[in-house]
Design a protein around this nucleic acid. Structure first.
Lengths: 290, 290
DNA sequence: GTTTTCATATAAGTTCTCCTTATAACTGTT
DNA sequence: AACAGTTATAAGGAGAACTTATATGAAAAC
């Protein structure tokens, strides 16, 4: 770069209007400033850019060639500024969310729908995996937000709890359960649990382990909805998330199995980078949820 | 434009090196200057562009988006500057010449060959037409140089004479001519002349008209070479340009017909705009010729 | 554990760029 | 002939941008 970039802006306007004085008005500076600017530019580049006649100016061949490049550059910068404006006003951008299937289906879906309706020009990108990998996505900058089950810790991340959930045991409608069950009793029932590497499973097993109880499920399934289905057709007792099974509980497809004392509540949190600012889209989505 | 273009250059280098201090070294200014610059840019654009940690910086999403545009702009400007350099060093550019067939063939051709051999990357564009139109091309900026027969005048153009030419009458080898002819005698011979709108024809007729003689050619042709050919096969007496018929005269295909007094010499000139500077290529070509 | 090194941020002061005003010189128009 | 419009030039002033010096925190080296 042989010259100040600002000179190019002056050159651009001057070339556009083919006039020093018009460019001056347009840039809100004096004609004299333009004249000096162009002289400086010409001397920096060692090229005569304008032909000065007593009744105006015109571009030289070299000026015309330069203009093509300068025009392209200025347009590009203007595009950049406009793009940032659009991002700020949520008229463009993307929202990259990492979340498991269960949370997506039962918690995020309605917010995603609303968000998309409000900001239709923001592209939504979903990634789903296990908690640790989703947090990795966020740390690598490949996702803006990750929704994970608490408890969870990470030096680089902020966890913002956004939903309290309760794990409850459920049975089919024909199963007879009158009194509250003790934990030991429940452990002996034919259990249907979510697969081993799910964080819900860890939570459950850790709780029982604290009381010296090991859980040995009869059936393991990969998705939360199957826990409900299997229980409703009396394949066993499932441990499900109450808030995500509301409909089925109300319809009587499954019944809550009283546990004494109940499992402690846990929560779902949204994780994002501590040090990096959230994108405008992510910020808006987070506000929607809270 | 919401900010000084110069800030973008700082932004560009900073983003490239992902470091304020490295960018500072590269731009030969202090780290402090960079820091202040970026802060100013961020406040002008109302967007955080970098994430500052205690061990360096990284671009935010918005910064990355802006970077793409800024990079494009800077590259474009650098291309422009390089392009100008190439023009200056005759490693690029074009040479647009307007000249008639005769002048092109007998005068310019050898120079064009040499010019192209010396500056192979300069595109050569030829236009040929009548004098007035060629001058118009130059005035419209559609040609850099026009080669025309003198005398010629134009307020906006500079005419630089580059070759003196002599119009002579020639006959075939079998034609008997001993003594010098008077103008009246020549006018009565069976003449072969160039077509009416050629400037050579005007020149000739004006000279004869000054002596009260009107020329009535038996044959008119469009190109100079045919004048020679027709004379050589005894179709009549042609008026040709001595310098452009050298070879045929030396080979004896045609003979000079002595005229007393001879036609005044005239010249070919190169015409270019008075006020606009010549392109580097045109300047080089002109120097080659002179 | 302490020190050193390497980041960026901030404060204050100075330099020097860039802009303004005023004027000149010239063209074309009214 | 006077005027409106163009660019060029000179001189001086305002203020932006840079420098130096210092703070602060993190990682690396000792």
């Amino acid at each position: 770069m042989k010259t100040k970039l600002d000179y190019y802006r002056v050159f651009y306007e001057t070339a556009r209007f083919r006039s020093f004085s018009t460019a001056a008005q347009h840039l809100y500076i004096s004609q004299s400033a333009i004249s000096q600017c162009i002289q400086q530019l010409e001397s920096d580049l060692n090229v005569q850019l304008f032909v000065r006649t007593k009744r105006g100016i015109s571009l030289t061949n070299e000026g015309k060639i330069l203009y093509l490049k300068v025009e392209n550059a200025i347009i590009s910068l203007e595009q950049g500024e406009r793009q940032l404006e659009r991002l700020r006003h949520l008229e463009a951008g993307e929202l990259r969310i990492a979340a498991g299937d269960t949370i997506t289906t039962h918690f995020l879906l309605k917010y995603l729908e609303e968000f998309h309706a409000t900001y239709p020009y923001i592209r939504i990108e979903m990634a789903n995996s296990y908690s640790s990998q989703m947090l990795a996505l966020v740390k690598e900058g490949k996702a803006d937000l990750a929704f994970v089950n608490m408890p969870m810790e990470d030096e680089e991340l902020t966890f913002e709890e956004c939903l309290e959930i309760n794990d409850v045991f459920v049975c089919g409608p024909d199963f007879e359960n009158k009194e509250p069950y003790s934990w030991e009793e429940v452990a002996k029932l034919p259990l249907i649990l979510i697969e081993k590497n799910a964080s819900s499973r860890h939570f459950l097993e850790n709780n029982f382990k604290e009381r010296g109880i090991t859980l040995e499920p009869q059936i393991e399934v990969a998705v939360h909805d199957l826990l409900i289905r299997f229980a409703s057709i009396h394949l066993g007792i499932s441990c499900v998330i109450e808030q995500f099974s509301k409909e089925e509980l109300e319809k009587g497809m499954i019944k809550k199995l009283p546990l004494d004392p109940p499992l402690p509540a846990r929560s779902i949190a949204c994780a994002y980078l501590k040090n990096a600012p959230l994108s405008y889209a992510a910020k808006a989505f987070l506000e929607l949820i809270m």
